[in-house]
Design a protein around this nucleic acid. Sequence first.
DNA 1: GAGAGGTTGAGAACCATTGTCAACTCTGTG
DNA 2: CACAGAGTTGACAATGGTTCTCAACCTCTC
Lengths: 134, 134
Amino acid sequence: MTETGAMRPTRQRTAVVEALETCGEFRSAQDLHDLLGRRGETVGLATVYRTLQRLVEAGEVDLLRTEDGEAIYRRCSTTHHHHLVCRGCGRTVEVEGPAVERWTRGVAAEHGFVEVSHTLEIFGTCAACAGRVG
Amino acid sequence: MTETGAMRPTRQRTAVVEALETCGEFRSAQDLHDLLGRRGETVGLATVYRTLQRLVEAGEVDLLRTEDGEAIYRRCSTTHHHHLVCRGCGRTVEVEGPAVERWTRGVAAEHGFVEVSHTLEIFGTCAACAGRVG
DNA sequence: GAGAGGTTGAGAACCATTGTCAACTCTGTG
DNA sequence: CACAGAGTTGACAATGGTTCTCAACCTCTC
Ligand SMILES: [Zn+2]
Ligand SMILES: [Zn+2]
Ligand SMILES: [Zn+2]
Ligand SMILES: [Zn+2]
């Protein structure tokens, strides 16, 4: 029943974490699976999903959803933060906003909501991408 | 080629809009389909999806995603706002935060991002749902 | 009321994600 | 080392939300 299970170090888990590490940006499970395959590291798709799930639960990986609902993952710092993501190249900047955190808690409390969580993502075009076009 | 197509008034479209109107909260396409069925208004599931899609494109309906990626829809005011949503019953409060708007613009500018947009949703359990359980 | 073109719906198709389960791996013990 | 016990893996099946297909069906216009 304990959630603090073993989490044994296996070849597959190491491979997934490394793929996330070297990639650096948000990627889907399938992308990571393909990436591993091309790299010669054979890891079952189900295992990729399971590992990502574990990592998300452990707070070691951030999950967010694309416009069409697909889950994408990224190795992030473990403190609470949000993202500024470039629509063009995927470049991601982690941002923090204590004032925003306070505001969301206040709004929720004000309306009697408990067990509150929130999502906040900023999308835009980074300087490099903007320059490249016009 | 024009996107400003006809959008003819049909029994089905009227029914979907009315369902959204009387419901008032975020609901999935399937929920709305069931709701219509129980009400005696027979509308094909595909039609419900198509209609919602159109309404979202027209800005008349807000679309957001539950934590597990399912799309949910709601008839909202047309001004910029965010949502405080109950995970249990879907009850929704529209909220505005000028400070947050300013903050996101500032953060984006600070990192040289342009064409900035953002998403911000707060999820929780409303007082009614919390009371019902605990 | 006939033609042109948008609309509908039953069912198939799609596709990301999860479940199944027998084979396999790691770890500690004797 | 043998070995038991528990965690892990992966090919494959299954799930479930969403979209596609296409023939039949409305709606508007002339
Ligand atoms: Zn992050
Ligand atoms: Zn960029
Ligand atoms: Zn809204
Ligand atoms: Zn509620």
